[in-house]
Amino acid sequence: MLQIFVWGGSFFLLAVMGEPIMRDTGWGSQWVYGALSLSLMISALLAPISSRLVARHGGRVQLACSGLIVALGLLIVAASETLPVFLLAWAVIGIGMAAGLYEALFSTLGALYAERAGRAITGITLISGFATTLAWPLVAWAIEHVGWRATCVGYALLLMLATPLYLKVLPGGGRLRQVKGSTEQSSPPVDRRLYALLIWIFALGAITMTAISVQLVAVLQGLGYSLAAAIALASLLGPSQVASRVLQMIAGKRHPIWTALVSAVLVAIGMLLVAFAPGATAVGLLLYGLGNGLRAIVRGLLPLVLMPASQYVALMGRMSRPSLIGQALTPLVGGYLMQHFGAMGVLVTLCSLAVINVVLVGLVLRSLQRSPAHEP
């Protein structure tokens, strides 16, 4: 639940709040939605620092502070009367995102539990799949009744009350010191080829997810669907993402490379159906949602298996930077494609990225099958 609150008050907030802010202030969409790009870019730049802090001090306090930082940003949003102050607010929110979203949380769990972190990561991503399902209706209802500024204040108070609970739900640093006790000299070297492949796999998956999160409704309308039909189709994503994570838990333990392959194939097939089979748009979105739901699990588990345990925390921070930079640029590039090439231009680009991702996961699988140390 704590992750739902932080995601809902940061990454997913403008999907619902952007339009009311533009109506009230007159600021252009490129500035309002560009504020999220600013947040993501700051989060990308700070990701390695965030992981180093987790490695050095443990993540309990950092995760608890992340919600307070996002809350401070939301209070500045509520008080912003000028565009520079609004952008400053989202810069602060970007700091909170670096301190408390998945990368920091996965690093904390990996540091605390090492190889046993997989079950916790799967469970957390399962619950977090409800972020948009819960946060969007709540924020929309609050905006309708009290306006967007008061909604920001209320959400900030919620974060101030909720996120310090990290101090209770996560154990202290005793277990962390055991993992930190491993010396780098005793750790096997990082396979640079696998490392590069994982960076690209995670980056392409994050770009696709961001594009869908920001532009899906507009793309569906560009394909001829009414606003109501587009929103109804988009609502299929949340339940399908959660369903895939439930199935992952039921399926039991297997090497996460197989989960990565299933995720990439489902996303690719889903995108291709949406783009080239108009009668199967709902099926395509369900398949995409299933694949994207597994993507979050893969992001935490695959590096945990393929990288030395003593280096997991530091590597997670470095690996997340390209993904976050790609996410920051996605709204701008997606807007350009939509303006100049329409909905099909966006979809063809996403289909291409999804197919490339399948190939990259296949290359990782082939490398593992040749390597007895990581054989799936």
Rank of each mutant, 00 (worst) to 15 (best):
T259N: 13
I95F: 02
W31D: 12
G59F: 02
A114W: 13
V6G: 02
T132R: 06
G224W: 04
A104F: 04
L170M: 00
P48S: 07
L105T: 07
P84A: 05
L40C: 03
V346A: 15
S310T: 06
I76R: 04
A44I: 00
C65Y: 12
I257Y: 05
A229W: 05
V355A: 10
A150H: 12
I269L: 12
P322D: 01
R318V: 12
G129I: 01
L223A: 01
V298G: 03
L165S: 11
A196P: 09
M160Y: 12
R119N: 09
A142P: 09
V283A: 14
T82R: 11
G154N: 06
P189E: 09
A44R: 00
I21Q: 04
T163M: 05
G58Q: 07
R52L: 11
L286A: 08
V305A: 13
L294Y: 06
A251R: 11
L315V: 08
L83D: 11
L302S: 02
L74G: 02
L347W: 07
L247K: 05
Q339W: 08
Q327C: 09
P256Y: 11
R23T: 09
H340R: 14
R295W: 14
A328D: 03
L329M: 06
L45N: 01
C351H: 06
A98G: 03
H374I: 15
R245P: 09
L176H: 11
G270D: 00
A79M: 10
F106M: 02
L266N: 00
M338R: 09
V92E: 00
W258N: 13
L332I: 12
G8H: 02
E115S: 15
G362I: 06
L287M: 10
V32E: 07
E103T: 12
H57W: 15
P171I: 02
V85D: 07
M249G: 07
I93P: 04
P84F: 11
A79D: 03
I250A: 11
Q327A: 07
V61K: 12
L368V: 04
G334L: 03
Q178A: 13
M97P: 03
G73S: 15
E19V: 13
T183W: 11
V348A: 14
M271C: 08
T330G: 01
S310C: 06
A150E: 14
A296I: 13
V85A: 14
M316H: 11
V246C: 11
S310W: 04
L329P: 01
A71M: 08
T125C: 15
V219L: 07
G110H: 11
L360P: 02
R23P: 05
P376N: 02
L105A: 08
S371A: 13
